[in-house]
C-alpha cells in the first residue's frame, strides 16, 4: 500500500519536476516570473488532444504538441516581454504584464473551448497495467516517467555539456558581462523560451494522460504547485526544481492517501509558507543575491 502510494507520488512528482524545471530555468536565465507559463501547459494538452482526435498516435502527438507550444511561447515572449527587457523595466512590471496576458489567454480559451472536461480518445495509450514487485504500474505511468527522464537528461546535458549551456549559465550569472563575452543574448532568450514552452507543453500532455482530463484552467492549478516547487527548491535552481517537484508530488499523494484527498491541493501552499518562514532561500538557493 505504502509502496504503491509512493510510486504514484513519484509519477505525479516527476510531472511537477518537469513543469517546475522550465519555470525555474526561465527565472534563472531570463530573470522574470512568467505567469503565462501555466497557460503553455493547457495549450500543449489541447494541441495533443486535437491531434490524437484527428487520428495521430500519441508518440507523434506528444513531441508535436510540445514543440508547437514552444514556438508559441517564443512568439508570446517576444510580444509581451522583449519590449520591457529593452526598456530595462523593473522585475515586477514583467510579472504584471504576464499576469494580464494570462488572464487574457485563459478567458480566450474559456470562450473558445468552454470549461467542459475533455478526454483523450479511448486506447490512445495501451491500457494494460504491469505488476512489478507487487505494485501496479500502468503504461501511461511508464510513458510519463520515461518522457520525464529523457527530457530532464537532455536538458542537463545541454546546460552542463555544451557551449550553448555555458552561454545560458553565463547569462543567468551576469547578463551584461555575458554579452560582452560574445554571448548572443537575443537569440538565447528565444532559445530559452522555446525550451521552456516545450517542457510545459510536454508536461501538459503527460498530465492530461495521467488524469485523462483536459480543460483550459489545468495550467492555473499547476502554477500554484510550480510556485511551491521553485520556492522550496530555490528560485532559479535546476536541481532544486527536480528534488522539490518529486518531494511535493509524494507529499500530495501521501496526504490524499492517509489524510483526505480534498486537502492534497493545500500541500503546496503549506510547504511554500513554511519554506519562506524557515529557509527563504529554499533547499539550494543562494540567499544573498535575492535579498531586497
Amino acid at each position: 500500500m505504502l509502496a504503491q502510494q509512493l510510486l504514484n507520488g513519484l509519477v505525479v512528482g516527476s510531472t511537477y519536476a518537469l513543469f517546475a524545471l522550465g519555470f525555474t530555468l526561465m527565472f534563472g536565465v531570463l530573470g522574470v516570473i512568467n505567469l503565462v507559463y501555466g497557460f503553455y501547459l493547457s495549450l500543449g494538452a489541447f494541441i495533443a488532444l486535437f491531434a490524437t482526435q484527428a487520428g495521430l498516435s500519441i508518440w507523434l502527438a506528444l513531441p508535436a504538441a510540445a514543440l508547437t507550444t514552444g514556438v508559441i511561447a517564443v512568439v508570446l515572449d517576444g510580444l509581451l516581454l522583449t519590449p520591457l527587457r529593452k526598456a530595462k523595466a523593473p522585475e515586477l512590471s514583467s510579472l504584471m504584464v504576464t499576469l494580464g496576458g494570462t488572464l487574457f489567454l485563459y478567458s480566450l480559451a474559456n470562450l473558445l473551448f468552454s470549461t467542459d472536461i475533455r478526454r483523450f480518445p479511448v486506447g490512445v495509450v495501451d491500457a494494460t497495467a504491469y505488476d512489478i514487485a507487487g505494485m501496479r504500474v500502468s503504461m501511461t505511468q511508464l510513458l510519463i516517467m520515461g518522457a520525464v527522464v529523457v527530457m530532464v537528461s537532455a536538458l542537463l546535458f545541454v546546460m552542463r555539456g555544451t557551449r550553448l549551456g555555458l552561454g545560458l549559465r553565463a547569462m543567468a550569472e551576469r547578463p551584461d558581462t555575458a554579452e560582452l563575452m560574445g554571448v548572443d543574448s537575443a537569440s538565447l532568450v528565444r532559445l530559452v523560451s522555446l525550451i521552456c514552452g516545450t517542457l510545459a507543453g510536454a508536461c501538459g500532455v503527460l498530465i492530461g494522460l495521467n488524469y485523462n482530463a483536459i480543460q483550459p484552467y489545468m495550467g492555473e492549478v499547476m502554477m500554484l504547485k510550480g510556485f511551491a516547487v521553485i520556492i522550496l527548491g530555490g528560485l532559479g535552481d535546476i536541481r532544486g526544481a527536480l528534488i522539490g517537484g518529486l518531494l511535493i508530488g509524494m507529499l500530495e499523494t501521501l496526504t490524499a492517501g492517509y489524510i483526505a484527498s480534498t486537502w492534497k491541493d493545500a500541500v503546496g501552499f503549506v510547504v511554500l509558507v513554511l519554506t519562506l518562514w524557515i529557509r527563504p532561500s529554499g533547499l539550494f538557493g543562494r540567499l544573498a543575491a535575492k535579498r531586497a
Partner: peptide, 13 residues
C-alpha cells in the same frame, strides 16, 4: 524581506 516576486507568488497561493 526578500525580493518582490516572493510576495506576489505567496499571495497568489
Amino acid at each position: 524581506r526578500l525580493s518582490g516576486v516572493y510576495l506576489a507568488l505567496a499571495t497568489i497561493g
